[in-house]
Write a protein that binds this DNA or RNA. Structure first.
Lengths: 134, 134
DNA sequence: CGGATATAGTGAAGCCACTGCACTATGTAG
DNA sequence: CTACATAGTGCAGTGGCTTCACTATATCCG
């Protein structure tokens, strides 16, 4: 049972990595994009706490995304120490496409699954997640 | 639903990483230990194909494990190019303890879960895994 | 106002996982 | 005995991640 779960974890992780790689993205960089999508322009500090990584690390991630044109550093309107990391139009399009692909993927996995089984699965996953938080 | 799954993936992954870190291990190094546990002394080449990584990478991983005393490089009895990576007694004890911890963890997650829900969960996970292979 | 202190970001250095390429030593087939 | 294949590793480079030190700016308070 745990074996099944771990196998799934590895499988999903690898699959996601392959998908992202097709857009020259990595999990970490995609995480930044995702956070920006959810929160709008934010400070690197905010990104650091949101992603639970070092501010120094955010610098590097943003460097990469900026080089790829997905993101720009804008001056913060009131705090001249800070920079606002902002999605470019291209970056926004990319995130939206990733969201579409993800929806498509979810459809592939769950769409023609009997509602009963789907509910059972959801309940089981939720319960595991709950227990793991303890 | 997919969100739930992804959350679980991240959670399980992080948790595992933390566990391994307590023994100064990483996922990659633990994978080597695990493979050795399952197959006994093997060639680095075999490890490379078993773990689906470059032979070059195995060299580094084995270096690390050897430095920590979990593993030794023994000469291959017939092929003088090859080295047999072998678990030391300490390494074996470590892997066994990891297995115990994993069993304990599994117990924490599943032990007092009603059999019905457990079955449903197992079936759901298996089906997802099945679909993902396509 | 002015000095102490906190904060945002980055350079430098370093660890780990991973890769490709080049090279040595050895095995193997013809 | 000569080709060619194979096992392992040095070298170089990428990416994610960390800590420490440092600059620039903000803020708080006497």
């Amino acid at each position: 049972m745990l074996g099944l779960l771990l196998e799934l974890v590895v499988f999903v992780g690898d699959d996601m990595q392959r998908r992202l790689a097709r857009d020259d993205l990595t999990a970490a960089r995609a995480g930044v994009l995702w956070a920006l999508r959810a929160r709008g322009p934010v400070t690197q500090r905010e990104l650091a706490t949101a992603l639970a990584v070092t501010p120094r690390n955010v610098t590097g991630l943003v460097d990469g995304l900026a080089a790829a044109g997905h993101v720009t550093r804008e001056p913060h309107p009131t705090d001249r120490r800070a920079t606002l990391v902002t999605l470019t139009p291209a970056g926004t399009r990319l995130v939206e496409r990733l969201e579409d692909e993800q929806r498509e993927f979810a459809g592939l996995l769950f769409d023609d699954m009997p509602a009963e089984r789907l509910d059972a699965l959801g309940g089981g996953l939720a319960e595991i997640l709950e227990r793991m938080r303890g």
